[in-house]
Amino acid sequence: MMVFRQFIKLTSTELRLFWREPIALFFTFIFPVFFLFMTMEIFIPADAPKEIVINYVTPSLMVLIIASTAIYGVPMTIVSYRKIKFLKRLKGSPVTPIIIMGSFGLANFIATLLGIALLVALAMGVYGASLAGSPVSFLASFVLVFLSLAAIFLFIPAVARSERTAIAISQIIFFPMMFFSGVFIPLDRLPDWIRSYISPFLPVTYGVELLQRLWLGTPFDDLTREVFILLGVLCLGLVIAARTFRWE
């Protein structure tokens, strides 16, 4: 019972702190919406059928939000909490590491979900986006994409000692990842060599693939390859994090 209370309180406090962080708010709420309008109004050819394009754009921008949480939000929080010894202080109280990490994960998941709710509301309201597949398998896949990306990028706080290094690493990873994995530009418009030698090695690619195709109505059963790869990424991320994570 007490474990439950600790978990709820840590999660709600973390969410409050997220709410007070302008950069996190920008990447979660403003940037994806801005990108949605830029794409729909400027980037796509004027004669392209918007009601079709929107259903490709919406799921890929969901992955943008997940990736920014996974690559920026979580690593930065961990590095800064470690630096001020807040992580160590938490460890010095009767809270288990699983509660601490679980609550960070849940708070970031909720924040991501809120960002996506705003994006989807606008995509549906303004451009008539609609989910063709099953909502249950879409939601489950969304959770999987979140967990696997959040886990694999936990190597950033393991490598970076300072916030400055963490930002540098995140930036080096984030933008190429967004360009080469089908988030900013559809995969079929990328050069062949990128598609065959770079994209398949980026975990984000499988997140975009999975969510986009489920959104467009491909049955879950036809996407087992993506699901298994993401599960593999999740396990790999957790193993690396468990071995390299530093509390101080």
């Binding site: 840590l10 406090t13 409050r16 702190l17 001020i84 807040f86 160590k88 109280s93 009767p94």
Partner: peptide, 27 residues
């Protein structure tokens, strides 16, 4: 009870929030 050398708390946590958070950890 522990006070750590050079231990700090998140910039944007309010004093009473920090107290409520830590209070929730103990029986």
């Amino acid at each position: 009870g522990i006070q750590l050398q050079e231990g700090k708390f998140p910039d944007r946590i309010k004093v009473k929030e920090a107290l409520e958070l830590f209070a929730s950890f103990y029986s």
